[in-house]
Structures are given as structure tokens and as C-alpha cells.
Design a protein around this nucleic acid. Structure first.
Lengths: 143, 143
DNA sequence: AATTATTTGCAAATAATTCGCATTTATAAT
DNA sequence: ATTATAAATGCGAATTATTTGCAAATAATT
């Protein structure tokens, strides 16, 4: 696990100011064992305003420090971007989340289920790609 | 493309009543070339109440007729579940969506980019599994 | 210590989704 | 065809999720 000093360095390197709010938010994610919603962060850090949390999540995502995760709940989740590659098992009924490691896409869903502690069945999976479209790439070059 | 009568059959088979609202919503999706948000459906069908649209999207999803898609916009998208397997290219800048066909997961992202009309670069992808966790499976058996 | 560009908190706005309830309607039973 | 009934709808309001404007606070720089 990364040390505190590393967080400050990381923030500075990415052009962020090092503030108590940002360090606190990073810490919440370091302690978490699963992706967190904005609300979960807000509830954990009742000292920090919700607008600040939303703004921080977004900017840390843009810097590549946090990663945005969609889990078909009605809100976004985030996790640290430097975690080992993994996927998520999401319960369609209750929303429970489990982390799945060591999963090349070739591995079958069945194998994942067999090795899962909490899941009985996989019914669907979603794979999305996120990138930059050509018109945005062109616009960025101009600026 | 499926004919109108097929929609009625499909709804009946899944235990839904055949109503004008549902047929209209299915039609919107049949005409669409990309995943639609609830708002897009609502704007297209200004005769239908938004609560009805939300309820219909959810129940058609539960019946397996629509599929829920997360695109990191701040709202859900849906598409017909019986479309050929495909994924989505989502622009991190402007949100533009492009459908990607013929994509086994083994195919590289680079190859996808090369064959894409609109995208210059893929920076990330997300793969999520959706299923039923053991405690929900147990509870469902009891009922 | 003074300057400056960021960041924060607060309050209010907007967006996304859901809920309660009275009414209507599709289907099944007569 | 008529009726009974469970499901679906519309409406308004409530919730939940996220964003915004602006003034005050603060981290980094000089």
C-alpha cells in the first residue's frame, strides 16, 4: 500500500494542490475494499462538503488517480486507478460487489463463478471502451 | 428487423401486458442506432409520462428485452437485448457513442481503433459481470 | 510576508429517478 | 359481449445524484 508521502507526491506530480480534503479522500479509497460512490465518501468524511467531494472525484479521475466504475446502480463509483487489473461481480438483486482478480477475458464466466465466494450465477457482462473520438482529438491538437 | 406482431408476442411471452406505451417504446429502440437514455425516449414520446417510461425501461430490462448499458454519462442507457454482440466506443470528451461489431475480447483495442470511423484512441475499457449472489439465490429459492 | 491561482464551503439549481395514489386498461373469466 | 381483476398509466410530489455561482479560505510561489 502506498504511503502518505507518496500521495502528496502523486498529487503534486499531477498538478493538483495538496489539500486536506484530497488526502482524506485518497485515504478513504485506500482503506476501501471495493469501489465507492460519491455518497459513501461523503458519509465517511462528514467534515468535507459534498460539492468538494464531487469536484475532487472528478479531478482525480481526470488526472488518472481514480478510475470511474459503472455498476448499474444509479450513481457512479470510483476506485484507485493503480489497483491490479480486476473486474467486478455485481449482484443484479442487491447490488453486492465482489472484486474478481486474475481474470483474462478468455477465462470463462463459469470459472469466475466457481471461484467466487459470494456469487451463484453470472447472467450478463458488460464491456465498454473509453477513448477519444477523432473530432475531439483534432480539437485538442488545435488548442 | 423484428415485425410489430413479434413485439406483441414477445411481450406476452414474457408476462407483460401489451400496451401502446410499451409498443411505442420498443419501436423507439428499434429505430435507434445507438443506446438511448430514458430522457431520449421521453423526448421522443412526448405522449408518454416519464414515470411510465422509467418503469417500462426497468421492467423490459428485467424481462431481458432491453439491456442496461453504462456509458459514464450521468444516466443509464438501454438497448435492445437481441442485438448482435457488440461493444461501445465512448468518447471521454464529448460522450459520442459508436457501436463496435465483431469484437472478441482477444482482439486488441488497437485493432478496434484502426477500424473505427470516429475514434482516435482507446484509453480505457471496462468489463463488468452481472449475476446473482449466493444470498439472493438462496432467498429466491425460498419464495 | 505578499501574491495569485486553486480550492473550498455554502446555498441553490438542475438532472435523474422514484413513489403514492387515483384512474384507466388489457386480459381472463363468464 | 360483459365483467372482474391484476397490471399499467398519468400526475404531482418526493428523492436522489450531481452541478453551479460566488465569496472566503488556502496552498504554492515569489
Amino acid at each position: 500500500m502506498r504511503k502518505k508521502g507518496d500521495d502528496k507526491m502523486m498529487l503534486r506530480k499531477s498538478g493538483c494542490k495538496v489539500t486536506p480534503a484530497r488526502l482524506a479522500i485518497l485515504n478513504v479509497f485506500k482503506k476501501a475494499k471495493k469501489p465507492l460512490s460519491a455518497q459513501e465518501v461523503i458519509e465517511t468524511l462528514h467534515e468535507t462538503d459534498q460539492a468538494t467531494v464531487y469536484r475532487t472525484l472528478k479531478s482525480l479521475e481526470e488526472k488518472g488517480i481514480l478510475r470511474h466504475i459503472d455498476l448499474r446502480h444509479n450513481h457512479a463509483h470510483y476506485e484507485l486507478a493503480d489497483l491490479a487489473e480486476h473486474h467486478h461481480l455485481v449482484c443484479l438483486e442487491c447490488g453486492k460487489i465482489e472484486i474478481v482478480h486474475h481474470c483474462g477475458m478468455e477465462e470463462t464466466q463459469n470459472r469466475i463463478v466457481r471461484s467466487s465466494k459470494h456469487f451463484a450465477e453470472i447472467k450478463q457482462h458488460a464491456l465498454e471502451f473509453y477513448g477519444i473520438c477523432k473530432s475531439c482529438a483534432a480539437r485538442q491538437k488545435k488548442l
